[in-house]
Design a binder for these strands. Structure first.
Lengths: 158, 158
DNA sequence: ATATTTAGTTAGCCTAGCTAACTAATTCTA
DNA sequence: TAGAATTAGTTAGCTAGGCTAACTAAATAT
């Protein structure tokens, strides 16, 4: 286990095990775990580890981004990002430019190769699940799409 | 990145990016990632890392279980499980008994302390999400509950 | 009776987390 | 405005968790 990071005592009043919210939360949590576990297989085909894929994704979609912002997005410490970006750079997937506005700073951006690799990976990963969803009645597929939106809303402002 | 594990060429025909299944899959994938990321905070309070919590969970719910079965459930190699279980044992959360039916084998089971720690963690983790769900209109909460069931069904037979 | 397979462990390597300690640049303040 | 404090990023060194290779011991197959 990595050394625990101090949290700003986050404990909101937890729902008691009796409430309908708790039961749903439990099911949702479990479903999310199993969903992601089943997709991990596809990610391996990219040749990149999960942390690298995740960081690359933030860099691709988050435009040129500062190291500190990237660390925050990935919820890791700056040294972790430093090393990770160094590896992505060595692989030709991203580049580091000095920030002209602040000469301490650095902006990371994806190369064409990086974008391409990510896009392929996303296609593979989501492709398998997408095929399964195609087989579903449209009603159920719509239900899942709405659920995804609800979940994002629940989680986003956290 | 850990050395890639050979996969039995799993590539099912991926859905093309145009289909409705693909768009939904993308949203669902993203929602699952963000959901789990937001809950990670609570897991840290348990003092156990994610791999240890996950293995402990399998041991608690999967009854006395062989090392090899545990490795399969966690999708890791036997040496990884050997070491992980050794640590859980050192912490007093699980115990290893020789398998009387096959003297090469070992059965791992949770101690009372292990069960208790897991239950507390689950309460904390799901509590925060549960509270958020309580605030939702019952209709939307039901939608999420049904979505969870659908997802499990999609993923389970994979 | 011996050879092969299977269950688990040990040894040794790599990646990804962390903290601590550092440099360089910026910003604040007396 | 000189000096102090803060901020951005890196380097060094540690631990945990992944892997393969190589091993022991037991079970099974020839």
């Amino acid at each position: 286990m990595p050394a625990p990071r101090r949290q700003a005592a986050a404990a909101a009043a937890p729902a008691s095990p009796r409430t309908p919210g708790f039961a749903t939360a439990d099911r949702l949590h479990s479903a999310a775990i199993h969903l992601l576990r089943s997709l991990r297989v596809e990610d391996r085909a990219s040749g990149l580890s999960a942390p690298r894929l995740s960081a690359l994704s933030v860099i691709v979609f988050g435009g040129p981004i500062a190291m500190s912002a990237l660390a925050a997005a990935e919820q890791v410490r700056p040294p972790t990002i430093s090393r990770l970006v160094a590896e992505l750079e060595r692989l030709g997937l991203v580049e580091r430019d000095p920030d002209p506005a602040d000469r301490r700073g650095v902006k990371v951006r994806a190369t064409a190769k990086g974008r391409q690799l990510l896009e392929e990976g996303r296609r593979r990963r989501v492709g398998r699940l997408g095929a399964a969803l195609e087989a579903l009645p449209p009603r159920e597929r719509k239900l899942l799409a709405r659920a995804a939106v609800l979940i994002e809303a629940l989680v986003r402002p956290a």
